[in-house]
Design a protein around this nucleic acid. Sequence first.
RNA 1: GCGCCAGUAGCUCAGUUGGAUAGAGCAUCGGCCUUCUAAGCCGACGGCCGGGGGUUCGAAUCCUCCCUGGCGCACCA
Length: 547
Amino acid sequence: MRAKIHLEDALKGVLADKGWEWPEKTVIEPPKDKQFGDMSVNVSMMLSKQAGKPPRAIAEEIMAAMESDVLIEKIDIAGPGFLNFTFAPSFWYETVGVIKAAGESYGTSCMGNGTRVQVEYVSANPTGPLHIGHGRGAALGDSLVRIMEKAGYEVEAEYYINDAGRQMLILGGSILYRARELAGQDVVEPENFYKGEYIRDIAADVMKANAGLLDMDEAEAIEICKEYGKGVILEGIKVDLAAFGVRHDVWFSEKSLVADGKVDETFADLVKSGMGFEEDGAFWFKSTELGDDKDRVLRKSNGDTTYFASDIAYHDNKFKRGFDLVVDIWGADHHGYIPRMMAACEALGKKGGLHVILVNLVNLLRDGEPVAMSTRAGQFETLKDVVDEVGSDASRFMFLSRKSDSKLDFDLELVKQKTMDNPVYYVQYAHARICSLNNKAADAGKKAANLGPDSLALLNTKYDMEMLKLLDQYPDFVEAAARTQSPHLISMYLQDLASTLHRYYSNCHVLSAEDNVASARLMLLDCVAGVVRNGLGLLGVSAPDFM
RNA sequence: GCGCCAGUAGCUCAGUUGGAUAGAGCAUCGGCCUUCUAAGCCGACGGCCGGGGGUUCGAAUCCUCCCUGGCGCACCA
């Protein structure tokens, strides 16, 4: 980050002197091959047209103008006109001081500039326990919240409770069916019901709590079962999410939205803006005008409103709460729903205010064999079971190591293994190794050096330089992860950092080094441990002191 | 049929807004423990980036047409 900022400032100065405009598409980044130097810039190629000169000639001019910079050791021109910069070691030493001074806040940036963002995720129907697929969305959403906060956004995490629709009636019916069955009544199995064992438990409890339940009018009994079941299941969901380290600031009920008349308000707004119309006894949203394939029904001819209707009202409500950006995290099987929701947001006057992230399927395996999952049929591996078996850290790291929009094989036996197939331990081990080393050092009466030019200059191996440069990149990765809403970038950075640490550990012995060298190395390793902890924190994964 | 997503080393996947000789881990093979955790390090092997055409100084990346796989196309949620 410092290297990038330094170059950007310097280059902007040079360009201003030359009377050239700063090209928007300029990229300052570490080159793929470290042999090219520390930072590579494509600005001369970008300027070619504007300046009316070939890229390499421009590069020559820029290079000449920057030769007096004492922090830069070497500038090369390569390929079609890349400028490759190598910084002086003295520049990299300062990284230690920067990290020390920042402490826990290292990697924080003001990129988000206080933009108010809402991230809505998980939002599973309260009709059964969360399964492993929900876990992926939970890990992603929670990590994204942490990352965006780190990057300077003001973020609120929300869970939307779908407690108003037909699924809830089915839940109520399922519980009542089991209750009657438990009471020994002769009952016919409904064709559409939740078959999970948990329904029986709820049925037993709801009968205890409501003595006359089975004598009531059926609709009334279903309502009682529904509300009771919703309460129990939602409580279970909250417990499971807490155990998974997932935070939601607001639990928003669909039912409350309907009860407050918000859906009707939305209908009225749509009529006013000419985006709603009556036809065939139903009320429609004219979404085709905003890019959708077909118009969508909001109120059916039987008078019921659709799920989409309350979803529009819900998003209207979100925007009215003042969020600049609303992020929805959905299962990938809902991708067909995006165009109509986008259209709805545009109709609400919030074009561009919604961003949808899709989370693809999780293929749950055990020793390579698929494990069946279906809430309705009652066969699933719940999130709780998985977390109990393989641990929250391993599960989260697994989920967050891949792009969200690609399918994921989650093999319980593999995730549980403490092997190289399982990078979470590789990264955690880097942290534990440093902690362990610190303890040993303390026993030997050695401690980390205070900052000072003499100590810093002892960090003079190529391994020191490699480490310092990577540490400097951490804030860039946080920004990139926030900008592209991709927590997996943090995961990959951490694997790189852990690898660099293990290499350092093998090549730069600490305890056997001279006292002042040992102290300098302990100081550097302290920074490394801090960044590992910091990054794992963004993923919601612990950084153990011992392993 | 239409739409969305994917196809990169034997396997699992990265690859930032179009950049240089396409990367990492696992697997395989070969080295490294009298010293801080070998849960580690070092090296080797491994590629028509699904295929064809196009855009340009330059394409895994952008456009187009095919092939393969997943998902979605309700007055369901």
